[in-house]
Simulated scan of single mutants.
Amino acid sequence: MIRLSIPLRQTLSRLSLPVLVAAAFGTMLLGKADALLAERARTVLADVLTPFYAAFAQPARAVRDAVAELPGLLALREENARLREENERLRRWQAAALALEAENVQLRGQLAFIPERAPAFQTARVVADGGGVYARAVLVALPPGVEVSRGQIALDERGFVGRVAEVGNRSARILLATDINSRVPVTLEGSRSRAMMVGTNGGRPRLQFWTEDTRPAEGERLVTSAQGIAFPAGLPVGVVRRTPTGGAEVELFARLDRLDLVRLFDFGLGALLPPEAVARPEPRGRR
């Protein structure tokens, strides 16, 4: 039997390839002869093999997704470590802020401090740029019943924008901080030195008239100064940017090129100024 089985296996192995080729050609001829039958056969075969495909595809998909998410997981790990460090730093700042707030309340109680009245404000929408005698100004629409007076301070969500220069029944014109007619007293937060921010009709106002022993530092924050009673103290203005020639300009916090809504604050200072002190128009082309 063993001697007979060996030649039989050899014969079958030699015949397997021709048999498979013949079966393939037969299947092709059958498909050409009867397309409907071939389609049904393919459908039945697909139905039979689909569960196996799904069973094998699930692990392969899981492995592929895991490999694709690996860079993201590594980035998330680094981001998580950074956020933990930042959260810890913010907790320390929060503890320091709470301690300073408690100390501030205690000192105010000892000094019989009277807090200032919160200023009233109105929100207005910018409807036009430029126009009038000013090169850098915007026109805002006022809803019926809203009262606005000259000299009120305009702020956006980031900082100082300008002052109300003209008022009508349904509109008001705001003189921007970059206009050549704008003069804003400011304070350097780092040195507490005072200076004057002067508009240039350009993108950044100039910083002038600071004290000789104090040089504005690059990146130093500026806030409004109460000197001259025209502005309240402490409104955020911008940061110092040094020029190649050694001068100082102000990069404003407010985005004057994309103003949409502004808040007009009434600090009660406009009534203390004569009308001509709010703005003195100069020719539009002058720089």
Score class of each variant (00 low, 15 high):
8 L>T: 13
13 S>M: 14
18 P>E: 03
19 V>I: 15
25 F>C: 12
33 A>D: 07
35 A>H: 07
39 E>A: 15
41 A>L: 11
45 L>E: 13
46 A>C: 13
64 R>M: 15
74 L>V: 08
76 L>W: 12
77 R>M: 13
81 A>W: 05
86 E>Q: 12
94 Q>F: 08
98 L>R: 14
98 L>Y: 11
101 E>V: 07
108 R>K: 14
118 A>R: 09
122 Q>M: 10
123 T>Q: 14
126 V>W: 05
126 V>N: 06
127 V>K: 00
131 G>S: 04
141 A>C: 05
141 A>T: 10
142 L>M: 04
144 P>E: 09
146 V>S: 06
148 V>T: 06
148 V>M: 04
150 R>W: 07
154 A>P: 01
157 E>T: 10
164 V>P: 01
164 V>E: 01
165 A>H: 02
167 V>L: 11
168 G>R: 01
180 I>K: 03
187 T>K: 12
188 L>W: 03
190 G>C: 07
191 S>T: 05
205 P>E: 00
213 D>Q: 11
217 A>M: 09
220 E>C: 02
243 T>L: 04
250 V>S: 01
253 F>L: 14
254 A>S: 00
254 A>F: 02
255 R>I: 07
258 R>M: 11
259 L>M: 05
260 D>C: 05
265 F>M: 03
268 G>N: 00
269 L>K: 04
271 A>I: 10
273 L>P: 03
274 P>E: 10
279 A>W: 04
